[in-house]
């Protein structure tokens, strides 16, 4: 069977959609189709990928406008007569073809206070029930699809004010760690702009790891920020005792 696939190619200011026809094999995923095109027709076609098993989060792209890992998206999920269109993630600056510059994410990560262990004698004791939630956040493969679909980043390009869903769960994973001593709430409020999230849950729907980004991380963290900084009694107490936020 043959089918058509359109790939966005080129660099900023010189973009085009190239159409290819490929021979489809059973079970083929979008990344296989791209590799086939690379090997036969377009050797310099740029696509970022690594594991081809949904574990590294490198091959993120927009397939027919939807955020997808191209290695986990089967061609058979789409009607045979439909031309598939693959484009790079829109939220990040384009480098070439399907590859974007995601380095901003790595800068944001460096701004987060790292894990600070509670030193004690002997091996740490933590129970599974205590770490289940943290482990959910640590499943993140950093595909940055949640960042790609987040309105605050995608439509409003507020990268200077908002860290994005990926780093909300990163922070939540540290804050909810039973043995972590770090303080991150002020930073989360002032620099990483947690208040800017208006809970549309696009990130949650996009997550290939099915992490409850909004419900399990962002909302609880918003509550913690509110408790810490906007509790009227606490505010009054701080005024009286001379502590400031």
């Amino acid at each position: 069977m043959k089918r058509k696939i359109r790939l966005q190619r080129g660099e900023p200011n010189n973009l085009r959609l190239d159409e290819f026809e490929i021979k489809v094999e059973t079970g083929m995923v979008v990344l296989d189709a791209i590799h086939l095109i690379q090997a036969t027709e377009a050797p310099d076609l740029a696509i970022r990928w690594n594991c081809k098993a949904g574990k590294c989060g490198s091959c993120s792209a927009e397939v027919n406008g939807e955020p997808k890992l191209t290695c986990m998206t089967r061609l058979s999920d789409y009607p045979e007569d439909q031309t598939l269109t693959v484009q790079p993630m829109k939220t990040f600056p384009l480098i070439k073809d399907l590859v974007t510059d995601v380095s901003w994410n790595y800068e944001v990560n460096r701004q987060i206070t790292p894990y600070q262990h509670t030193e004690g004698t002997g091996d740490p004791i933590m129970f599974q029930a205590e770490v289940d939630r943290v482990q959910e956040f640590r499943k993140c493969i950093e595909c940055f699809l949640c960042q790609d679909v987040c309105h605050v980043l995608r439509s409003h390009d507020m990268k200077d004010e908002f860290a994005g869903p990926r780093f909300m769960i990163r922070t939540a994973g540290l804050e909810m760690h039973p043995l972590d001593q770090g303080e991150r709430l002020e930073h989360l409020r002032d620099d990483h702009g947690i208040g800017l999230c208006n809970i549309t849950k696009c990130c949650t729907y996009a997550c290939p790891e099915h992490i409850g980004i909004t419900d399990n991380a962002i909302i609880p963290m918003k509550e913690r920020v509110v408790d810490e900084y906007y509790d009227p009694l606490k505010w009054l107490w701080n005024m009286v005792t001379g502590k400031s936020n």
Binding site: P114, I125, Q128, Q135
Partner: peptide, 17 residues
């Protein structure tokens, strides 16, 4: 053990190890 002190969260036994 060092990884655990750096923030890794391994699955736990019933005793919490």
């Amino acid at each position: 053990r060092e990884l655990e002190r750096w923030g890794a969260v391994f699955d736990r036994t019933e005793e919490g190890k």
